Amino acid sequence: MRINRILLATPLVVVALIIQVSILGRLQLPGAVPDLLLLVVLGLALVYGHVGGSLIGFGAGLLADLAPPSDHAIGRYALVLCVIGYAAGLTKPDSGQHRSATLPLMVVLGAALGSTLMYAGVGSLVGDTAARHVGIVGLLLSSTLYDLLLAPFTVPLVMALARRTEHDPLATDGSGGGSAIPVARRKPAYGWLTTGTGLKASRGAMKAVRTGRVPKPARGGKSGRMKGVKGLKGVKRL
């Protein structure tokens, strides 16, 4: 990962975890707790791609596993967010920016359902049956509702901050705007060096300098001078 990505993702993940543990976790809402950490990971994964999303998801989940009052096995939520970040990063378009909010909204919806199911599934493998007592259907409905309500205020802001770290000044136009110029349309800065005519002309000039010979004029110029001399002779005879 790039240094600027780490410098942005680290404070965002830490702040989201603090808000989730100290504020959202104490609201005593029915069902699940709003997962602000998941939304931050999704916002970063939608901009950074599947590799960055998986790494950020694993780090954020590991911090959540270690943060009090954690009562589950360490690495359980890290695995869930790693997979979710990887899957969300796969939806990143080739242009680097989503044209509408439909796809990010569908990603949030799928991540809310998938993270709850994966968390309960991993818990059943390690012997944690808390999800069965609470009710998996109630957890799915409440977590999806809370995440969808928080997503419009969280995901666009995180994506906007992440795009600023991905800004490439060489790929923008001269006006200073953010419109990127495709690589295929960029003209080489030294185009005359890459053309065959330019290479031949430069080679001929260098050869003339080394040998000390001045290149002969074109035939058209020579014939023009001969005709002019003959005309002058005719005038003298008259």
Rank of each mutant, 00 (worst) to 15 (best):
L55S: 02
G196E: 09
A205W: 04
I56G: 01
G228E: 13
S115A: 15
K92Y: 01
A171Y: 01
A73K: 07
V126P: 01
S142W: 02
A184F: 13
V122D: 04
G114L: 06
L232M: 08
G204Y: 07
G89Q: 08
P11I: 05
D35A: 04
V47N: 05
P169I: 08
G176Y: 05
S202E: 03
A78N: 08
S142F: 00
P188Q: 13
D35M: 04
L193K: 14
L44M: 15
L63P: 00
G53V: 08
A120G: 10
P169W: 07
V21M: 01
G135R: 12
R163N: 11
A60R: 01
L81S: 04
P11L: 06
L232E: 13
V51R: 15
A189G: 04
G178V: 09
L105S: 12
V214W: 03
L140Q: 05
F58S: 11
T102K: 06
I23D: 05
G59P: 09
Q97T: 12
L24F: 11
A189Q: 12
G196P: 08
A205L: 04
A131M: 08
V137K: 03
I74N: 00
A73W: 06
V122T: 15
D128W: 00
S175E: 09
T172K: 00
V83C: 10
L44F: 06
G231Y: 04
P169K: 12
L139S: 13
P30C: 15
I56N: 05
A130R: 13
G52L: 08
L103S: 02
G75W: 11
V158G: 09
S22R: 11
T211S: 14
Q28F: 06
R186E: 11
R186S: 14
A180H: 10
W192C: 05
S124E: 14
A130L: 11
G177F: 02
T194G: 06
L36I: 05
V51E: 07
V214Y: 05
R213F: 02
S124P: 07
Y190A: 13
S100T: 06
H133E: 10
S100E: 04
T91M: 03
S54H: 01
G96Y: 05
A189R: 14
G196F: 10
P34N: 07
D168L: 14
R225N: 11
V14L: 15
Y119K: 11
V107Y: 07
P69A: 11
V80L: 11
L42I: 15
K216W: 05
V209R: 14
